[in-house]
């Protein structure tokens, strides 16, 4: 698979990353190596092999419908980069 500038730009946009051009070159090389490695797996015949959805063999780990485990508003907001007394704050997402 060819790693193009367009692909890097598209992935950066999806991940909301702003990349300098020298960073892009580095990433192109890294990503290329990763994809080559994964493509190696394509050489194995997997016909009739179910995809592995989960590492653990445990199934049906369901919980009963009980209210428990919430934290306080103060704790919830503690690590927020921007907050007021009750809310997380983010840049305005609606243009006026």
């Amino acid at each position: 698979m060819k790693i193009t500038d367009e692909l890097i730009d598209e992935l950066a946009q999806l991940a909301r990353l702003e990349l300098a051009s020298e960073e892009k070159e580095g990433l192109k090389a890294d990503l290329g190596r990763m994809i080559n490695f994964v493509e190696k797996l394509n050489e194995v015949n997997t016909d009739g092999v179910e995809p592995l959805l989960h590492i653990s063999p445990r199934m049906n780990v369901l919980r009963e419908d009980e209210v428990l485990g919430s934290i306080s508003q103060e704790e919830a907001l503690r690590n927020a980069p921007a907050k007021n007394e009750a809310f997380f704050l983010v840049p305005k997402v609606i243009k006026k």
Binding site: D65, E66, V67, L68, S72, A76, L77, A86, F87, F88
Partner: peptide, 22 residues
């Protein structure tokens, strides 16, 4: 349901903001 889909926070409507969180 009384609690959320993947954790035990309450689903009740109208609580003070960011109090039914974990």
């Amino acid at each position: 349901t009384a609690s959320k889909l993947f954790c035990g926070d309450s689903t009740a409507f109208g609580a003070a903001p960011n109090t039914h969180v974990s």
